[in-house]
Design a protein around this nucleic acid. Sequence first.
DNA 1: GTATGTACCTGCGGGC
DNA 2: TGCCCGCAGGTACATA
Length: 273
Amino acid sequence: MPELPEVETYRRDLEKLVVGKTVDAVAVSGHRTVRRHAPDVLTDTLTGARIASTNRRGKFLVLELESKKAVVIHLRMSGQLRWLGSSDQPKLKHTHVVVGFSDDTEVHFVDPRTFGEWWVSSPDLPELWHIGPDALVSSAQDWNLAERLARRKASIKSLLLNQQIIAGLGNIYVDEVLWRSGIRADRPGADLSAKELDRLSRAISGVLAAAVEARGSTLADRQYVDIFGEPGSYQNQHHVYARAAEPCHRCAGIIERVRLGGRSSHFCPGCQH
DNA sequence: GTATGTACCTGCGGGC
DNA sequence: TGCCCGCAGGTACATA
């Protein structure tokens, strides 16, 4: 599933592949991918536009156009971006958006579950005002977790998944961050000590930096591969996610998998408290 | 304001 | 072999 490291990997590759290029043609198929406005708004905005830069807020990817408009992309559960070096290569099944550039290259949006979304926005991105500070580019001071988690009785796991508190973490990386912090997923947010919040902040930064460096996590279902169709490698550094019944790398206890708040959670009962 | 549950959707694996 | 069912999960929205 694409979370912050996977979206950031797409962004960095797109920065090299499409910035400065002019869009030649856009094709949208199906009715779900562009649903905040008519598909024509996207095709009309992009056709003839030059890509000025790429950006990212949490799991939202942004193409900034020289026309001072922006195209926001969210991959949700199963969305993938693919770069094709020429327009005569075959389309993958479940391709919903094709952006063709004047040099005959193309970027395709492939999304079997059709939860992913594209829309046209203004440069100040009002649709993203509600989300919290970015978990990668902002600092622990910006996150201010002590303030944001104070008086919150919900589990620390559900609070870290809440994009309004901190933007970018999903199920995989929250489990990894909590393992690295030595904190159980079902602890109420307000119960964490200052020392634990400090460990948590360091773990968020450390896990995300390493995952971006490894170009994200590709699990057995291959729901995420990069823009060239290649897998990431951070799954080889996972300590808990998708490792149920295997020994903990820290204490040799057995990793457990439970349902928490409707999500699968992986943790070590021996060294997470 | 906060917490919890549900819908959205398709592919896959397990059970029969 | 084929069918059915449950599960996977990010976000928005409804409800308590």
